[in-house]
Amino acid sequence: MARARIHIVSPASARDNNGNWQTASRWRRHLARDYRVTIGPGWQPPDDVPDLLIALHARRSAAALAAFTDAHPDRPALLVMTGTDLYRDIHVDAAARASLDRARAVVVLQPRGLDELPQALRPKAHVIYQSAPRLAPARPHMPFDVAMIGHLRAEKDPRTFMDAARLVRTPGVRLLHIGAALDPELGRRARETEQATPAYRWLGALPHMATRRRLRRCHAMVIASRMEGGANVIIEAVTSGVPVLASSISGNVGMLGEDYAGLFAPGDAPALAALIERSVADARFVERLRRQCAARAALFAPAAERARLLDLVDNLLSDERKHPSAQP
């Protein structure tokens, strides 16, 4: 029997090297043993017709999802809520809301994401944590590197990290900022911070594995975002034994746990600076963060993500396996 075909619609490409692309690429690997999987920026007739369409991002993939479900209402479509669509777009954008209705099933990347969905649609929603292979931690020595990883755009709130860098006074702390300046004004701000603050370094965009290797040598990682669906960088830090200092937004709390000790209010640069300095000065505090992160690591194992994804995909395709479509 021929393997079923799955097409993943990703608004990002390998060149973008962002969370959406990492999700699409990783899911292709997870599914490729059992299915024929392709990735593309969209879907429109007369493209090849997959047995299942997986659409990443309710607004940015809305046109592809609409075209597929209109042309092939008998075939399932799976919508993955990746961040800005969950926490902004479905509340203000008609096309994003329509995507929720069109999808046979919806995936959120951490359990707090369920709270954003309309009550009537929650029965078709599933939580699938993302994953990353474990890298053996390399306990840092002086200088103590604290990294923020993410392209420079408003949702990631890089200004808070830059402002915190100006406030940190502990000797031997270096704040590393990895990511491309998608917002030119934020790039200018990063260059100004680098000139004014010797402890701050903006490294620009780095390849994914180079970033992971840099991360595993860090003392801590900062995620200052105003909006996140379920950040890959949190998973990559946790699976490398690197404690996380995170803004207390829903997406981050859903990943790290309600009682996580390394949270600060979004936009609060003094609070972030204080956490960074405490993590260096207070050995008991940083060990508590490491223990809390280690307790979450099993959630982010590749085998766990693959099992949840395959279970959902198998169920979505089960009816078609029993009653194969006559379409080519």
Score class of each variant (00 low, 15 high):
T160C: 08
L316M: 12
R29N: 12
A265K: 12
Y129C: 03
G40N: 04
N18S: 13
A303F: 07
A303N: 14
V37P: 07
G179H: 00
L79W: 11
W43S: 07
V168M: 10
V253H: 03
A301N: 03
A304K: 02
N20K: 00
P140F: 04
S250D: 14
N315V: 01
F161Y: 15
P302N: 09
A164I: 05
A224G: 03
I90A: 09
R306S: 05
T82Q: 08
E228P: 14
D85F: 05
Y87S: 14
P118Q: 00
D268M: 10
L109H: 14
V173Y: 10
A199W: 08
R306G: 01
G40I: 00
R169P: 06
S225W: 02
V37Y: 10
A71R: 00
T239C: 13
Y35H: 13
D145C: 12
L117T: 13
R278I: 07
W43M: 03
D89L: 11
L31T: 15
A154M: 07
G172S: 09
V146D: 02
P41S: 02
P137S: 13
A66L: 12
Y200K: 05
T211P: 06
Y129G: 08
E192D: 14
L215Y: 08
S248M: 00
L121P: 14
L256W: 09
P133Q: 10
S131L: 04
L109E: 07
T170C: 07
I276L: 10
W21I: 02
P76V: 02
V108H: 05
R213D: 15
A120K: 06
R134F: 12
P111H: 05
L182G: 05
R201A: 09
D74W: 02
E185W: 04
P73W: 04
L109T: 03
F161W: 13
M255Y: 09
R214E: 15
S99Q: 01
A63K: 03
G241C: 02
G172L: 03
N252L: 07
I223K: 09
P143E: 00
V233Y: 11
P266G: 05
A326L: 15
L53E: 00
Y200R: 04
I235N: 05
L114V: 14
V92W: 01
R291L: 07
L275S: 14
A294H: 09
D319R: 15
Q22S: 14
D115E: 15
D34E: 05
R159N: 08
H323C: 06
A304T: 04
R15C: 12
I223E: 07
A71H: 04
V92F: 04
Y200M: 11
G254F: 02
R159T: 06
V280Y: 09
G267Y: 10
A164D: 04
V168T: 00
D16E: 04
N18P: 10
D16G: 03
V222Y: 12
S10L: 11
P171G: 13
A281W: 01
D314R: 13
Q130F: 07
H219S: 03
L109P: 13
T193K: 02
V286G: 08
R284Q: 15
R26L: 03
P140V: 10
T69F: 13
A105D: 11
L53H: 07
H208C: 05
L310H: 02
A132N: 01
G230V: 05
N20C: 01
N20I: 00
P41Q: 04
I276E: 04
I149L: 14
L100Y: 10
